[in-house]
Each structure stands twice: as C-alpha cells, then as structure tokens.
C-alpha cells in the first residue's frame, strides 16, 4: 500500500484536469488551458501526459508507456514505475493488453481499439508558436480560423527544398476546424490519428490539454500539387523484416555500418516471436536458445 492518493494527484486537481479533458473532447483540436501542477519530474519529461494519465486512470486499468516507440527507455520506465507505485495499477508492454497508453512521440503500430486511451506528451502544443510567438495573437488566429501563415510555412518548405520538409510534429486540421500540433510524432504516424481510441494530449509546462475523439477527421495539411506524404525509410526492419513500420536508424560500428529497426519495440518483438526474420536477425536456433 502506497502513501499516495490514488494516481498521485489530489482529487480537486484531478477534477480540474477532467473538466479540461471533457471540454477538449467537445471541441476537438482546441487547446484548453489548465492549471498544470508541479510534478515530481522535470518539465520535458512528460509532466502534461502524466497529469492527463493520472486524471484518467482507474484501479482496473493496465498501463503501457512508450518513449519513441520503446517500452524500455528511461522516460517510459520511470513513468510506468511512477504509476505502479502511486496508483497500484497493472502495467504491460503489450499494446493490445493496455487500456491506457502514454506515449512520447509515437503512435503504436498495432491499431488501437475502442476502450483504449492514448495519452500524448506534448512539448509545444501551439502549432503556430514558431510562426507567431505571442499567445494573444495565436489565440486570435485560432478564433478567426486564420491559418494562412501555416500554409505559407509549408509553401516556403517547398520553395526551399522542393517538397514539404516538415517530418515530425506535422500540422493537422481536426474535423475541418482547428489546426493542431499532433505532438512530435513522425508524420508517418499522422494517418493513424483517425482511430477508434480516444486521444488526449497534455502539455505540462505550456498548461494546455487537447483531445481528438474516436473516428474524428484528422487531415495533414498539404497542397493539391504537393499532397501529404507519410514517408518512411526505404528499408525493411533488420530484425523482423517488416516493411510497413516506422524505423529507427542505428549506427552499429565505426565503419558506417547501420541497421534499421522498428521503433515500436513491442510490435517488433511480437513479429519476431511469430517467426518473422530480418537481415540481421540471429538464426532461429540461436534465438530459441537465447529465449530459453
């Protein structure tokens, strides 16, 4: 038994966050201001996502936390431990087994289902922030649906590079109204945002919560002659052979050797367990020995 209130936050704070989440659901893509609390972790480590998760978790939940697709990185492990300790909930690395998934910068490869909640950690919630630093102005721009500046930015990409060079945190329009920052997920993940699960976004330092309900139209901004392209590395995964997943490029030696592996560690491991093999997979016999 821990000496924390269930899921760490006090009840009044949770009520405040819950009200913000519900208004976010009612106005998809709109950033709801909330009184973000100090959390026992530094800003930039997912304080927004943690507060949203804390407001959502029930005792019956199974939590999965990923950082760039991986379950075993510092950020993911520490947040998982945080909720194991303060909420006493079950945790998992299996996407399918999780009811709440907190993520930093990825959407799992496995399609999410109804009944699941995906909580994003968001560093800068305002998609227009780097174009217009004043909050008073960006708020007005959202109110007036004045998003020309964002298209100018994408156009300048094309003028400079010949294509839209934005590859992560690629802006989307939600249900034809609000332009939204999908958090720094790779643009490869953007098409997945039209999903069956509830998506909640928490930005702790910036004190904003926003949401995308299930089956909501999420369109990546583009031009007719430069349509959105959810590009990925032109390689199969070197461990599981998948050709349809988002890959990390890993430098493996001092001679320029490299490998490409699924960024979603759970998905990759499950494929390997099913017998899928990539270019650099150990032979099956070795893998079996290692498993024993």
């Amino acid at each position: 038994m821990s000496d924390y209130n269930f899921a760490y936050l006090d009840e009044q704070t949770k009520r405040m966050i819950r009200r913000a989440i519900l208004k976010g659901i009612a106005v998809p893509g709109y950033q709801v201001p909330f009184a973000s609390r100090e959390m026992p972790m530094p800003y930039g480590w997912g304080t927004g996502g943690v507060q949203v998760s804390a407001a959502c978790l029930m005792p019956e939940d199974t939590l999965k936390v990923i950082d760039q697709g991986a379950d075993d990185t510092t950020n993911a492990v520490s947040i998982r431990k945080f909720f194991e300790k303060t909420a006493g909930i079950a945790v998992t690395e299996k996407t399918r087994a999780a009811t709440v998934i907190q993520t930093r910068h990825r959407i799992p490869e496995e399609p999410l289902a109804e009944g699941q909640i995906l909580v994003y950690q968001v560093p800068i919630p305002e998609p227009l922030r780097f174009l217009e630093p004043r909050e008073t102005e960006t708020r007005k721009m959202h109110a007036l649906e004045e998003y020309g500046l964002m298209h100018v930015k994408l156009y300048e990409d094309i003028a400079k590079h010949g294509h839209i060079a934005t590859s992560y945190a690629y802006p989307v329009k939600v249900e034809g109204r609000y332009v939204m920052d999908p958090s720094p997920i790779p643009k490869f993940d953007n098409p997945k945002m039209d999903m069956a699960a509830i998506q909640l976004f928490g930005a702790g330092r910036e004190q904003r919560i926003y949401a995308v309900p299930p089956y909501t139209k999420v369109v990546s901004l583009d031009f007719e002659d430069h349509p959105f392209d959810p590009s990925k590395a032109e390689h199969p995964c070197d461990l599981c052979g998948a050709e349809h997943t988002y890959l990390d490029e890993v430098i493996v030696d001092d001679d320029g050797g490299r490998m490409f592996v699924c960024s979603d560690t759970d998905y990759c491991a499950e494929r390997q367990a099913l017998g899928h093999r990539g270019r650099l997979s150990p032979p099956e016999t070795l893998a079996e020995e290692a498993a024993q």
């Binding site: 899921a7 949770k14 009520r15 519900l22 009612a26 959502c56 029930m58 005792p59």
Partner: peptide, 19 residues
C-alpha cells in the same frame, strides 16, 4: 472510496462524451 469511485465515474463520463 472517493479517488477510485471518481476515477471510474470519470471514465464513464469521458466515454459517454467521446462516443
């Protein structure tokens, strides 16, 4: 049990409004 009961109730309210 206020924290646990409120958490379950909120999830019902969230699912209701989100769907």
């Amino acid at each position: 049990a206020p924290p646990q009961d409120a958490a379950r109730a909120f999830r019902a309210a969230l699912e209701a409004l989100a769907r």
